[in-house]
Amino acid sequence: MKIIELKESITASNDEDARVLREELKQNHTLLINLMASPGAGKTTFLGKTIKDVGDKIKIGIIEADIDSDVDAKKLAELGVEAVQAHTDGMCHMDAGMTRKALEELNYQNNDLVFLENVGNLICPAEFDTGAGRNVMILSVPEGDDKPLKYPLMFTKSDVLIITKIDTISVFDFDFDKCEQRAKKLNPNIQIFKVSAKTGEGMEEWEKWLSAQVKQWV
């Protein structure tokens, strides 16, 4: 037996699958956005509002990743977008292989934009590249401004941080400046949007960014 030195990332096979998938998506003019957040941060409500606002201009598809059930996919399908449910079979994250399967089921080529609503969790989804063109994370005001300290990897890997439920600010001790500072320290390039999907406040800016990204990608 001989020793072979590798010094390779343990998830190298996923990194490669993700790279290939990202290229394919680019060639097919579909932007995949990996949306990550804790359970209850308001991912589905936020997506619902985004679809209502820009769904007539951008053709959107949805992949709902959950350990089980299809309540979210049903909710979003009611808004007239194509939505598929990807079950992760008990796993806490989506990887590039699972994402590819779900995209194929969705016939993603018909869409300009596909949102992958990842499993609700701020840890594991950050560890696995899904092949998405952009990573977006949601942090809701009730969760607290200290989350960048507790889940640094998620903030490092995200291109965008959406702070949601800003309409509840009067009842929570959430310091926007502190949260921003903490996030920027981990990731100086992170873009931050403050929104309320319920009142619509701040959504316009996010949607402007989103439309620009879709145009840039295709």
């Binding site: 037996m1 001989k2 020793i3 072979i4 590798l6 010094k7 390779e8 343990i10």
Partner: peptide, 15 residues
């Protein structure tokens, strides 16, 4: 925070 495959012991077909 690393997670790296450092090395493997392997037997090849030639061997």
């Amino acid at each position: 925070n690393e997670c790296i495959i450092k090395e493997i012991e392997a037997e090849t077909a030639d061997e």
